[in-house]
Design a protein around this nucleic acid. Sequence first.
DNA 1: TAGGCGTGGCA
DNA 2: TTGCCAAGCCT
Length: 347
Amino acid sequence: MYLEENFKDNIVHWFNNNQRSMPWRETTNPYYIWLSEVMLQQTQVKTVIDYYDRFTHRFPTIADLSEANEDEVLKYWEGLGYYSRARNFHHAVKEVQRDYNGIVPSDPENFKSLKGVGPYTQAAVMSIAFDHPLPTVDGNVFRVWSRLNNDSSDIKLQSTRKTFEQQLLPYVQEEAGTFNQSMMELGALICTPKNPLCMFCPVQENCEAFDKGTVLDLPVKTKNLKKKTIEQSVFLIRNNKGQYLLEKRQERLLNGMWEFPMFEASNAISEISHKLKHDIEPLPEHIFKLKHQFTHLTWNIKVYSVPETIDINEKVLPDNMVWFDLSNRDDYSFPVSMDKIYRFIEG
DNA sequence: TAGGCGTGGCA
DNA sequence: TTGCCAAGCCT
């Protein structure tokens, strides 16, 4: 038996002496704790801190955020990625303002029903803010728990999550929030994917994988397929005031973010001409190109300059298009790919 | 249920 | 350069 009585004491004691300083650990406000958990999804602590500080400064209360418009919320998320998090969080906070009188529900079922709240966020906020006995199972805990138990279950499977949650229940009956954060902090600082610092691990004596020499083989996770590459064409189209045409994306990917008109290269010219009801003839060669990597796909972008200027008065733009003055960068949320193009033009 | 969904850091 | 990973959730 590896997980003896001293396991929880060991890891919590280590956490109390070694945890990193984070702004959301200095508050008991459930709204702030919730926000931090959403920002931290698939995102490193170091990246989140500045975004968290700016966001809480601009939207200090549930009421403040619920009154904001979505474009401004996205602006405060710009560069953080996974923008549906921002839209879902905004939606959920408005729901709290309307249905719960602006108070984050402390009932786990009610909280879980809010948009963007999954099993992890439910457990994290409920345990940290309200001491509910729910275990957080995130990437860190999958790794730590797999190694402690020398368990080679595929962590991609839903059934593995459920098993881990059941196995962790005894440890969250008291001080759940502290235990949960201890497990995650251990995974982030000691029990890392590569080069784990087992010699400094406070629960080395509780770790079956360390004993058996299988630490680097765990956790087991089936691999994803190879990612696709899409050839994209971007058009820089100006009017007679020197402003550039922008389009607000209405697709799943980067929904609500602004871009210079972009189309798949194979039919780009006809697409943009049709959209503007105007024949577009860009310079035959692209003025520059860039490669943008997502987790699941790659964009090879060629940027074309359209020499002709379009008379602003002769054209009624579709709702999701605007003329963009380079000096008004702060009014628009760009994904990183478009910010690269903006900086090329502006610089 | 498996794949879509951003970005930055690291070996 | 390439692939993997980071306090996951949605459809």
